[in-house]
Simulated scan of single mutants.
Amino acid sequence: MEAETVTGRANQKARTRKAIVDACRDLARSGAEVTMPRVAKAALVSEATAYRYFPDLTSLLQEALVAVWPGPEEALAPVAASADPAERVAFATGYLLRHVHAHQGAVRAMISTTITAPARSGARPGMRFALIDHALAPFADPSPGALARLKHSLALACGAEAFFVLTDLCGLSPDDAIATAVDTAATLTRAAFASET
């Protein structure tokens, strides 16, 4: 009888945790603002209960989004055979920013957390770095340090922050913002390889 009670409690905890994660994932997919109170409400639990399972929104977002973002190999499969670094980087940039736009509530929450608590910046998924690395993996460094410099430039030009600057501050539509970032990333890449040949 006692074992059944323990098992029942464990099952209930697992169901509650799953409900919280699923609610967070659904909110993230909707593009709506993601906050712990909204997640708790959608999961039909109290905010205090949500915090018992996840100490902060960042840790919840990490778990909720792990299945939403595919790995770089899958993401860049359409350009896997390309020998053009600019084409590969442009595709990676467009792919990343379409996902940022689709999940912008969650992305904004993650950025906000890491701005206010820089020590937590390692908690962000880092999808941009994985995509950039994979896009440029087939290519040799044209000169010492050239790829590292290019990757740093691309991290600045094609990330979520750049997308939000273009949409929020410059007033571009999401499609125009993505097109601008894609063009910038391709231009940077072409320049890096052309200047070293």
Rank of each mutant, 00 (worst) to 15 (best):
A3Y: 11
A3R: 15
E4G: 01
E4R: 08
T7L: 15
G8I: 12
G8W: 11
G8F: 03
G8K: 08
R9C: 04
Q12T: 11
K13A: 15
A14Q: 15
R15L: 15
I20Y: 12
V21R: 10
D22Y: 00
C24R: 05
L27K: 07
A28G: 08
G31V: 07
V34Y: 00
T35P: 09
A43W: 12
V45F: 09
S46F: 09
E47K: 14
R52L: 13
R52C: 07
Y53G: 08
P55G: 04
L57M: 14
S59E: 14
L61D: 09
E63H: 06
E63F: 04
A64H: 09
V66Y: 04
V66H: 05
A67E: 15
V68H: 03
P72F: 01
E73L: 06
E73A: 14
E74H: 02
L76S: 01
A77I: 04
V79D: 05
A80E: 02
A80M: 06
A81Y: 01
S82T: 00
D84Q: 03
P85C: 13
P85I: 10
E87S: 05
F91G: 02
A92Y: 00
T93R: 06
G94H: 04
Y95A: 13
L97G: 03
L97M: 06
V100Y: 08
V100N: 06
H101E: 13
H101M: 00
H101C: 03
V107C: 09
R108I: 04
A109Y: 01
T116R: 15
S121E: 06
G122S: 14
G122L: 15
G122D: 10
G122H: 10
A123I: 08
M127N: 05
F129G: 14
A130Q: 09
L131N: 01
L131W: 02
L131K: 00
L131P: 03
I132C: 09
A135D: 03
P138A: 10
D141Q: 06
P142K: 07
P144H: 07
A146C: 12
L147K: 12
A148M: 10
R149M: 09
S153K: 15
L154M: 15
A155C: 06
A157V: 13
G159R: 05
F164S: 04
T167F: 08
C170E: 14
C170S: 14
L172M: 14
L172E: 11
I178L: 04
A179C: 00
V182L: 11
V182M: 12
D183F: 03
A186Q: 05
A192G: 11
A192F: 01
F193P: 01
F193H: 07
E196M: 02
